[in-house]
Computed example of a mutant assay.
Amino acid sequence: MDYFLLVEERDALWEHYGIRVESGGERTEIPGITASQPGILSLLSKLMRGEVTPVAARYVVEDWLLE
């Protein structure tokens, strides 16, 4: 499994973060999850610890947003 941090930058003061998960031929990309860098790093860590697949990534992100 490969995990990537996505950064969307509009100007020097505005960034939104998302994730991409890839495994074999599967890929899930979820942009714009949060504006919190510590938050997205925590989410990425959670995904990696749980070895979350591209198929399950959306469900984990949804649960994380509701926490």
Rank of each mutant, 00 (worst) to 15 (best):
S45F: 08
I19Y: 02
E9A: 14
E51G: 13
K46T: 12
G18M: 11
V61R: 01
G24F: 10
V52A: 11
L66D: 15
G25Q: 10
K46A: 08
E62M: 14
E9N: 08
G50W: 07
L47T: 01
M1V: 14
A35G: 15
W64G: 13
E62I: 10
P31W: 12
L44H: 00
H16P: 00
A12Y: 03
T53R: 05
M48Q: 13
E9W: 04
T28C: 12
Y3A: 02
V61T: 07
E51L: 10
Y3S: 00
V61I: 14
D11M: 02
S23F: 11
R49C: 13
I30N: 01
L13F: 12
V61H: 04
D11T: 02
S42H: 06
R20A: 15
A35H: 06
H16Q: 09
W64V: 13
D63N: 12
L66C: 03
L66P: 00
D63T: 15
E62W: 03
E26M: 10
L66S: 06
R27A: 14
E67A: 11
K46P: 00
P31C: 07
S45Q: 09
V52N: 05
Y59R: 09
E51W: 09
S23C: 05
V7W: 01
Q37G: 11
V21C: 04
V52S: 06
S45M: 02
E9V: 13
A35W: 14
P31D: 04
E8V: 14
E15Q: 15
G25I: 07
R58F: 08
V7A: 04
I40C: 02
E29W: 00
S23V: 00
L41W: 03
T34V: 10
L43M: 06
L13Q: 11
G39D: 05
T34P: 05
W64F: 11
E22Q: 11
L47F: 07
Q37R: 08
D63K: 12
P31M: 03
G50H: 06
W64Y: 12
A12G: 07
R58H: 09
S23A: 15
R49W: 12
Y59H: 10
T28P: 01
Y17V: 05
H16C: 11
P31K: 04
V60R: 00
L66Y: 04
Y17G: 08
L47A: 02
W14C: 03
V21P: 08
G18K: 03
R49F: 12
R20P: 08
G39V: 04
V21Y: 06
E62V: 06
L44N: 01
L6W: 01
F4L: 10
